[in-house]
Design a binder for these strands. Structure first.
Lengths: 199, 199
DNA sequence: TATCGAATGTCCAAAAGTTGGACAACCAAG
DNA sequence: CTTGGTTGTCCAACTTTTGGACATTCGATA
């Protein structure tokens, strides 16, 4: 956490100052914003690990939709930060929807500093796991496509691919490659020539 | 939903009857339990798509821990049903923890029948997506292992594997297999013989 | 059920590929 | 400067692949 950067968005300057005061000792950097429209710009340039986001900016609407809206925008990023939502007008349904929409946690004003800090901490951890899973999912899809396309290859194409993979694995050493493939070195030469890798 | 089976657990007979009355027109079957200790037995034998689970059974403790406990047990199953938690003593933190722990939704007593039904419905849908992802993750891990082991194969082993895969894909048709592999039919015969698939 | 196109099983000889062994040249590590 | 391992190249014996041919079997369908 001492190594993480937090971005705080709240339209109330007092709240913002108070939050910054508490969190500046906990995070490496604390950035604050009053206008949520500037969030995406900041996230695209600065290195932000976690966002503490107020849910109500237009004082006429207190339903939290704005927070959920910006949460969605943030989660559309390729590598979104963790998001913890904070609101003075929280109800159970809003809290549930927030977490369902991908928020790591949900904090109500007035907050307890200790609780806030501990929630931010576990939010960072949970988010890390979530991102790891996301990466795995993406890799899985790529793998699946590769597997599928491999199944359509001719024997020769498959051979070429496997030989090249093995050569790469062996760091270009042709003796060990031939031995791994259980073919004679001469044959490996022939094939590499056929496949246009050498000569 | 008309094709799904629901299991309702609540220690209050009146609540149980009332819920059953509402939901029997919505689900294919409605099973009810008063004692949460019997949940796992039922889930292991009956076909349950979604569980509506009360959070408090011991009237001295109203913190909802029991609901979270049984939620965890349910989610340890290999193919867990969707779970919607219901409680009369809900607060925001409990709702958040519930969803974080894998509940699809969180309902407070007294409930609105319409809202309950719509939450159960979307819970089923969300859960289905979640399970699809889970399956993908598991398949991903299996795929990764297979890919890794493939990279260690000799040329001949790789050839054998690819040929057998292609034969299977072509439903055993050797003419189309040979053409897909871009080898002569005779060669395919030779190799199948070499690999002990025929003769 | 008779028919016909596709698939199977088997054969052949020419062409192509694979093999182990050999040898000079190279190179990086001691 | 030696040495163990690698590279690049050659060879002749051996094996595999190839296209073509042919009779047989299979399966859909008229």
């Amino acid at each position: 956490m001492e190594n993480s950067n937090i971005l705080i968005i709240d339209d109330n300057q007092l709240v913002l100052r108070s939050l910054k005061l508490v969190l500046k000792n906990v995070f490496k950097t604390v950035t604050t914003l009053t206008d949520p429209h500037t969030i995406m710009g900041v996230l695209n340039t600065a290195n932000v690990d976690i966002v503490l986001l107020d849910m109500n900016f237009d004082s006429r609407k207190l339903d939290g939709e704005e927070g959920l809206f910006w949460l969605s925008r943030i989660n559309e990023l390729p590598k979104p930060p963790a998001v913890v939502l904070i609101t003075a007008f929280g109800d159970i349904d809003l809290a549930v929807r927030s977490v369902q929409s991908g928020a790591e946690d949900f904090v109500t004003k007035p907050w307890s500093n200790d609780v806030l800090i501990s929630k931010l901490k576990s939010a960072l951890e949970k988010h890390k796991e979530k991102m790891d899973k996301k990466v795995m999912m993406e890799r899985s899809e790529a793998l699946l496509k590769e597997m599928e396309s491999m199944q359509k290859l001719s024997l020769e194409e498959m051979e070429r691919k496997h030989i090249l993979d093995t050569v790469a694995q062996e760091g270009g050493n042709l003796v060990s490659t031939a031995s791994r493939l259980e073919i004679s070195r001469q044959t490996l030469y022939n094939k590499l020539k056929k496949y246009g890798v050498i000569n």
